[in-house]
Design a protein around this nucleic acid. Structure first.
Lengths: 253, 253
DNA sequence: CAAGCGTTTCCGCTGGGCGGAAGCCGCGGT
DNA sequence: ACCGCGGCTTCCGCCCAGCGGAAACGCTTG
């Protein structure tokens, strides 16, 4: 019996093996991987074995499988995200020191924000996001900033699609969302109280490259109280710094 | 004619495609990839195309190829390096603020140190390392710390192998290296003036998990002058903090 | 000690993938 | 404008890498 649809490339199977690892699965058994990826165990076993030989996966002493550092190493190398991170990091540190709460850097990936860096303190407010974690664009302040400056096509697609509510405060009405985006473009900042968690407020500003195009969002997550707005100037200042730092070092003219 | 050895798995070809990207190659053409990976252009074209469809590679407007964020995302997720980084980051930030120079976190990968995090200031000393960059274990302070606590087998293998000199000060004599390692174990710190670059001094201390095993090295790179030793206490203090932060949150008992 | 589960190994059949060649596009030279 | 060149993609027929059923292995549990 065929466990998976026939007529499929090896590569897609490999991709599915990696996608079997959810954000919370640090280690998986071969059978578990096979089940999630929809592969025959024998196939999974063979592929996992080869991936281990290449260092893309590694095995625990108990034979369980986890993602190997080699994979991370290759991915980190030429990733465009890295140079952005490199430029933003010093300013993020300063911002983090001043604000004292979660400070994060996100880019738009599809209709979601992908967070590529996060600085946090143990005693800071709750934060659902994590590094290499995602959040729908319309619920996070970073997402709203990125969406506000995204191609109109993508904006419409998000406005049309279902808008999940994380809390009662999440904007789920297309009309209101449209207004919010316009306001973000006008004011240059997204200020969201309790969109993703009642207790937190997210504030995000755009980061622009040399051409003025918005390439990322810089944000902080602070306690949801009336003082939250106070952080906006610091955030804007940091954003200016990052954008300036990115301008000279453009890879290609 | 066969450009590559026949009888080879698709996977190894894919791996070679990714390895075609050196640390400095942000974007490559298909032909370039094919040449470096030893593949037929047609093969490279087909595989690249499929990898792009899966988001592991992405194409510039000019059809050149770079590594996709999806790859980084998957790699970051379950990587054991991430939880280490998460625990170390707050302390690294403090250390960085106090020392004011490059602060880095490295793990042992084979006979080399792989740097998984680095904080730096633009005005700091030269630093050859980079995030996701490697350095032979015997030339960097981090490497010496990690090597000093590595399995004897690995130590002997490094001591036996060729020991490249980066500067005249790099330790390349097996006997002296053996003594250095013993000293690192005794004093709990590796102090290296001008091993990798004449102008810089590296200082590294071990990070231990709950079982007391050395899992990483925390290091700073400062100007190579007589004040360098002054940083040691701050470094040791930070290391204690990180080790403590790692102990409670052990994934599996 | 058997039953159950997870994992690896074996092997014969087959379709995914290889690579030669042709075709397409954009560039620079005459 | 024409041609040649280099990079890239597409096509297609042959063939071996890889699939998956099955069996064997090893560990835990009742």
């Amino acid at each position: 019996m065929r466990t998976s649809a026939a007529g499929e490339s090896v590569l897609s199977r490999v991709v599915r093996i990696f996608e079997a690892f959810g954000p919370d699965d640090r280690a998986l058994g071969v059978t578990q991987i096979a089940r999630r990826a929809g592969l025959h165990v024998a196939t999974a076993s063979r592929l996992v074995d080869e991936l281990v030989r290449h260092g893309w996966l590694r095995r625990d002493p108990d034979r369980r499988v986890r993602i190997g550092v080699r994979m991370w190493e290759l991915a980190s190398r030429a990733s465009p995200a890295l140079s952005l991170r490199e430029a933003a990091m010093p300013y993020m540190e300063d911002l983090h020191a001043v604000v004292g709460h979660h400070t994060q850097l996100g880019v738009l990936e599809g209709r979601e924000v992908l967070f590529i860096e996060r600085l946090s303190s143990p005693e800071a407010v709750v934060n659902l996001t994590r590094i290499a974690g995602r959040l729908p664009a319309h619920v996070s302040s970073s997402g709203l900033v990125l969406l506000a400056h995204a191609p109109r096509e993508l904006q419409e697609s998000v406005l049309a699609g279902p808008l999940a509510a994380y809390t009662p405060h999440t904007v789920t009405d297309p009309g209101r969302l449209r207004a919010v985006l316009a306001d973000v473009r006008r004011s240059g900042v997204a200020f969201c109280r309790g969109y993703v968690d009642e207790r937190a407020a997210g504030i995000a500003v755009p980061l622009r490259d040399a051409d003025g195009a918005v390439v990322a969002a810089l944000s902080v997550v602070v306690p949801n109280d009336d003082n939250a707005r106070m952080q906006i100037p610091a955030l804007k200042a940091a954003a200016r710094g990052v954008s300036r730092a990115m301008s000279p070092g453009m890879p290609r003219p």
